[in-house]
Amino acid sequence: MIITNIEIIPGKTIVKHLGMVQGNTVRAKHVGRDIMAGFKNIFGGELKGYTELLQEAREESVARMTQQAEAIGANAVINVRFSTSSITAGAAELFAYGTAVILE
């Protein structure tokens, strides 16, 4: 499975477009991380806990997107985009979408 955010895959031709695939996940931060973030809000600096949390969440949304692409028989996803939205206080949705294609 090849995943890119450009429209072509160099050296390969796209045989068939299968339409959009998507994956999302909603994550909430837990209390321990919130307390640490409170401290960091005084001293400044990177919130490593949040960085990891968001990274994991994005990986999961990409994994779900990939799963969906595999289910419809694609072997690559092109033109991938990421989007983030906060739904309520303390929870965020991470969303990945792209076009599933079959490569030669």
């Binding site: 429209e7 990177e46 919130l47 968001l54």
Partner: peptide, 27 residues
Amino acid sequence: RTLPPQTISPEVALVAGNVVISIDYFK
């Protein structure tokens, strides 16, 4: 979005980096 026409590259991959930074109290 488009690659230069002379590009020859057998492989592509999606790469990403993220960071969360907090502001300090004074600022």
